[in-house]
Computed example of a mutant assay.
Amino acid sequence: MTERTPADERVELALDLLANLEHEDLPLPAAVDRIETVTTDPTLVRRVLDEAELRGILEREDGRIRVRRGSYVSFESDVVVREGDFDCRRCGASLSTGHFVRFETDELGPFGSSCVRKVLGRE
């Protein structure tokens, strides 16, 4: 069995995020915006999209993606709020309260209260 690299782990985390989006249909740039909360490496972003399609997580067509399976993140049980000194992974704002999303593969965050909702497709 081969060991997973840090890049492999980021891909798996991004796949978890895509599988748990609340929007079933969104423009490709919006999906990329969400993936970029995990990695901004263009090669990995492309790898995430390709792997998501291969695994049946999403379909791509005409600049849009359609999420095909997954479940939604529960804010009560899957989002952890911590006090501290953080920078939002999405917008870069300084935070005193960080929101972290727990997935099977890892935890993603910190995010501000509005950015965590945007990343998960609640806004």
Rank of each mutant, 00 (worst) to 15 (best):
A7W: 04
V73P: 01
D25W: 07
P110M: 10
A7P: 12
G63A: 11
E76G: 04
M1R: 07
P29A: 11
L54E: 14
V45Q: 00
S74Y: 08
F75Y: 15
E3N: 05
S94D: 15
E51V: 07
E104G: 11
G121R: 07
V119A: 08
T40N: 13
I57W: 00
A7V: 06
V67H: 02
L49Q: 07
V80F: 06
T40I: 06
R10T: 02
E22V: 12
T37Y: 01
N20F: 05
V45P: 00
R55D: 03
D50G: 01
S96Q: 15
R68A: 04
V101H: 08
T39R: 05
V101I: 11
T97Q: 15
V79P: 10
R60W: 02
S96D: 15
R46G: 11
C91I: 08
V119I: 13
D25V: 08
L15T: 00
F86T: 04
R55A: 10
V119H: 09
F75G: 13
R55P: 02
G84H: 12
A19I: 02
S74Q: 08
G121I: 04
A7T: 06
V81C: 08
V67P: 00
P6G: 08
R34M: 09
E61H: 14
V67Q: 03
G92F: 15
R82C: 11
D106K: 13
T105D: 02
V38F: 05
V11S: 08
V80I: 13
A31D: 11
A52Y: 03
R4N: 12
T5S: 15
L17E: 00
L58G: 00
I35M: 04
R4S: 14
V79L: 10
E107I: 14
V73I: 15
R122V: 00
E59D: 10
C88Q: 12
E9P: 06
V80K: 12
L95Q: 06
G121H: 03
L49T: 06
T39S: 11
F111I: 10
